[in-house]
Simulated scan of single mutants.
Amino acid sequence: MEKKDLQILAQNLANPQGEKGIEIGEMMNATNIGMTLESIKTLLIEDDETILEIGHGNAAHVKSILNKAQNVQYTGIDISETMHNEAKRLNAEFKDHAEFVLYGGKKLPFEDQAFDKIFTVNTVYFWENPVEYLNEIYRVLKDNGTFVLTFGQRHFMEKLPFTEYDFTLYNTDEMEETVSKSYFKRMKVSEKDEEIKSKTGDETVRRIYTVLTIKK
């Protein structure tokens, strides 16, 4: 891919826009679904819980969350108006149990201790102030709640040609250190790998990623 195409891809991975953004959203859902389903499994969702996903993309996976237990309430939040609209369209049948919120990317527009479980997949690269943002997540998570943070490890991500454009990459130790600077006190680390199709073409790559299970 040309440099300009890589920049456009990087911009749409961070904040999908328009028709191109819809295409990127579909591609992201396909390539990230393994990480997403692993994150959902790690949450250990129970009946009557409230779940927040940060950076939901097109949210084609919401059914997998709602099927985990009885009377689950899902909230997805995203900075992309394109993904916000796509998520509502794709999940219209679940409107009684799933809502989608558009926001500016810094302050979470929710009351303190609003959610039992929170998760995010492949968004941490775009957080402007990671510790401040982690403290926002801490604020809206219940005291006995669980936060799952999932991301591709630095040595894998830096091989991808688009990550040189406005991505901040982390290895597991760097992310653990970042979390330790926030209000969160405990975390469990799990490292995974999977075969996926590259975002820049049809070749298959081996992705190595980290799932952090974080508690107050």
Score class of each variant (00 low, 15 high):
Glu26Val: 08
Thr82Pro: 04
Glu194Asn: 07
Pro16Thr: 12
Lys117Leu: 07
Asn12Glu: 09
Phe94Cys: 07
Glu128Ile: 02
Glu2Met: 11
Asp112Ala: 09
Val140Tyr: 14
Val148Ser: 08
Arg154Thr: 08
Asn71Trp: 12
Leu108Ile: 06
Thr213Ser: 13
Glu164Ser: 12
Pro161Asp: 06
Lys181Gly: 01
Val211Tyr: 01
Lys181Trp: 00
Gly25Ala: 15
Val124Arg: 01
Ser198Gln: 05
Tyr209Pro: 02
Gly25Asn: 10
Val179Leu: 01
Asn122Ala: 06
Leu149Lys: 04
Asn85Gln: 15
Glu176Asp: 03
Gly152Phe: 05
Lys192Thr: 00
Lys20Asp: 09
Leu6Gly: 04
Arg207Ile: 00
Arg154Asn: 12
Glu26Trp: 10
Glu128Thr: 10
Asn144Asp: 11
Ile8Tyr: 11
Gly57Ser: 14
Glu132Arg: 03
Ser180Ala: 12
Ile40Arg: 08
Glu49Thr: 07
Phe162Pro: 00
Thr163Glu: 03
Gly21Glu: 12
Leu6Asp: 02
Ser190Trp: 11
Ile8Trp: 09
Trp127Arg: 00
Lys216Trp: 09
Glu99Pro: 04
Gly18Asn: 11
Glu38Ile: 08
Gly25Asp: 09
Ile33Phe: 11
Pro130Gly: 00
Thr172Pro: 00
Asp166Tyr: 11
Asp143His: 15
Thr31Pro: 03
Val179Arg: 01
Arg207Ser: 01
Tyr74Met: 15
Asp78Cys: 13
Leu134Ile: 00
Arg207Gly: 00
Leu134Ala: 02
Tyr103Gln: 02
Thr172Gly: 00
Gly18Met: 10
Ile8Ala: 10
Lys188Asn: 10
Ile51Tyr: 05
Lys215Trp: 15
Ile79Pro: 05
Gly201Trp: 05
Ala14Trp: 08
Ser180Lys: 14
Lys107Phe: 03
